[in-house]
Amino acid sequence: MSEIEVTENGTVASVKPGDEIVLRLPESATTGYQWMVDSIAGPIDVVSSDVSHTSSRPGAASERVVRLRAAGPGTAAARLALSRAWETEPVERFEVRLDVQAN
């Protein structure tokens, strides 16, 4: 198992079953805007979605760290949306596509 870090929207990556894909997205939770997993397609699972703070100061920048795991061979995609809970349309989207190779 290996870990692949993705920080660019639209990334297409080749991975193997069991690999963990880590998405790191800047987030300012104090503004109400948070990244949420919008959709998952294909052989991948969401392992976790956590906020990592770069500083303990109020209002400091943070990042959303989403961990995905390739579950089996095939084509997969994950789409995340940046929005506030009370809004219906996101202000930004982030997508990653995966080609999960057989072992």
Rank of each mutant, 00 (worst) to 15 (best):
M1R: 08
M1W: 07
I4Q: 04
V6P: 04
E8A: 12
E8Y: 05
N9E: 04
N9Q: 06
N9S: 12
N9R: 04
G10A: 03
G10R: 03
V12L: 04
V12A: 04
V12D: 07
A13F: 02
A13V: 15
S14N: 11
V15K: 01
K16T: 15
G18I: 12
G18L: 14
D19W: 05
D19L: 04
D19A: 03
E20P: 08
E20H: 13
I21C: 00
V22P: 00
V22A: 00
R24V: 15
P26V: 03
E27W: 03
S28E: 12
A29E: 11
A29T: 09
A29M: 09
T30C: 14
T30S: 13
T30F: 15
T31R: 11
T31M: 12
T31F: 08
G32T: 04
Y33G: 06
Y33W: 12
Y33S: 06
Q34V: 15
M36Y: 06
V37R: 02
S39W: 09
S39K: 13
I40L: 14
I40F: 03
A41T: 13
G42H: 07
G42T: 09
G42F: 10
I44D: 01
I44R: 02
I44T: 03
D45I: 14
D45G: 13
D45F: 10
V47W: 05
V47R: 05
S49T: 06
S49Q: 10
V51L: 12
H53P: 05
H53A: 14
H53Y: 13
T54F: 10
S56H: 08
R57L: 15
R57V: 15
G59Y: 13
G59I: 06
G59R: 14
A60I: 11
A60W: 07
A61T: 10
S62V: 04
S62F: 02
E63S: 14
E63R: 15
V65Y: 02
V66S: 00
R67Q: 05
R67M: 04
R67H: 08
L68M: 06
L68Y: 03
L68S: 01
R69N: 05
A70E: 08
G72H: 09
P73Q: 14
G74W: 07
G74E: 05
T75E: 13
A76F: 07
A77K: 12
L80R: 00
A81Y: 01
A81S: 13
A85W: 12
A85K: 09
W86C: 11
P90I: 00
P90W: 01
P90E: 01
V91N: 06
E92Q: 13
R93T: 15
F94Y: 01
F94A: 00
E95P: 06
E95A: 06
V96R: 00
V96T: 05
R97P: 09
R97I: 02
R97D: 02
L98I: 01
L98V: 02
D99Y: 03
V100F: 02
A102C: 05
A102E: 13
